[in-house]
Structure formats: C-alpha cells, structure tokens
C-alpha cells in the first residue's frame, strides 16, 4: 500500500521525490515538489490511492546508506503539527477561498480559521501572490502590509471582506 502510493507519487509530474510510511496508524506521504509550488488538492485527485496526510519538504533527508532518514522525516511531521492551531473549519466563503489559496501556496492541507500564514512557512513574496489572486478573483486591492498584519486566516478574511464592501 505505502509502496504503491510512493510509486504513483514519484510518477507524477509535479512531484520531485517522495517517501511514504505509516506513523500513528496513518499513511503519511513526504513529498518534494518538482517545481516551485505543488497543489496537494490536484495531487489527491490524480492518485488512485491517497495517503492520510501529506508533508511537503524542500528536500528529502537521507540516511548514510541513501535511504530516507525516517527519524528526521518524523521530526518534520511533528514540526508541521506544532505550527498548526487546533482545527477550526473555515466558516464562510471568503475563509474557504483563502484557505484553498493558502493550501496551494504553502503546500499544507486542511488549513483552519485560526492558522497563521507566517507560522506555516509563508513569506512576503507569497503574500504578494495572495494579493494578486484577490485582485483577479474578487476585484479587491489589498495592500501587502494589510495581508502581513492580518496573518491569521479568519482575520485576513474579515479584512478582505470589509475592503470589498467599502
């Protein structure tokens, strides 16, 4: 099962490398994007069998013999979990829209209303991409500093909504 998922991940054009294992009774896929960003939603749709969770990494840590360093990978998974707030489902259209956008930009699934953009690995250039997408999809121009300061999802959604109405 894990090997099948690993093989189909490796065969996918958007994936550079992948390692799949079972941790805490969950199938966990560690993936390195082939290009700058990777949409986990599209990846899930493309796979016949899907893991329970993804962890996106800049590179796969390897042990001395060239196999994946599972201890280090497990640490990365723990680190990602600590970056997240207890899950609160997005509650309105703007929160759901931004959650989907962040998920694509950050390579993190199930982003919740209380999650923080910078804590999840965001940086200023990615914030500019949020700004461009908001312009295109919602016709609203949000200054970058407003996106920076309102880096928690539900706060960002509220400020974007208020600017759209103004």
């Amino acid at each position: 099962m894990t090997q099948d998922i690993e093989r189909s991940l490796r065969d996918h054009a958007s994936v550079g490398s992948a390692a799949v294992t079972v941790e805490d009774d969950r199938v966990v896929a560690f993936v390195v994007p082939a290009a700058e960003s990777l949409s986990l939603r599209e990846l899930r749709t493309a796979l016949a069998d899907t893991p329970d969770e993804f962890v996106v990494l800049p590179a796969l840590p390897l042990a001395g013999d060239g196999t994946p360093d599972w201890a280090e990978l497990s640490r990365s998974r723990g680190d990602l979990r600590r970056r997240r707030q207890p899950y609160v489902a997005p509650r309105n259209d703007m929160e759901r829209y931004l959650a989907g956008l962040w998920e694509d930009l950050l390579g993190v699934e199930d982003i919740g209303a209380d999650d923080d953009f910078f804590t999840l690995g965001g940086h200023s250039l990615l914030a500019v991409r949020i700004r461009m997408r908001l312009q295109r999809d919602h016709g609203v121009t949000v200054p970058p500093e407003v996106l920076f300061e309102n880096s928690v999802l539900h706060e960002q959604a509220a400020v974007v909504e208020s600017m759209r109405e103004a």
């Binding site: 923080d116 910078f118 690995g121 940086h123 200023s124 500093e145 920076f148 300061e149 880096s151």
Partner: peptide, 30 residues
C-alpha cells in the same frame, strides 16, 4: 523577518531552531 530562516532545518543536533520575529516586520508589521 523570521521567515529568512525557512530553509533551515527544524533541528541542528540537540538544538531546536527557533527564529525570532521582531516588531515591524511580517506578522508584526503593525
């Protein structure tokens, strides 16, 4: 801001890497 350390690993040996965010930048820009 603290995001410049995003390419660093989460641990170096026994040390957990903990970047500090100063006011006036990124999520503290206000």
């Amino acid at each position: 801001g603290a995001s410049v350390f995003r390419r660093w690993p989460t641990h170096i040996g026994p040390l957990e890497v903990v970047p500090l965010q100063l006011p006036g930048r990124e999520n503290r820009i206000g």
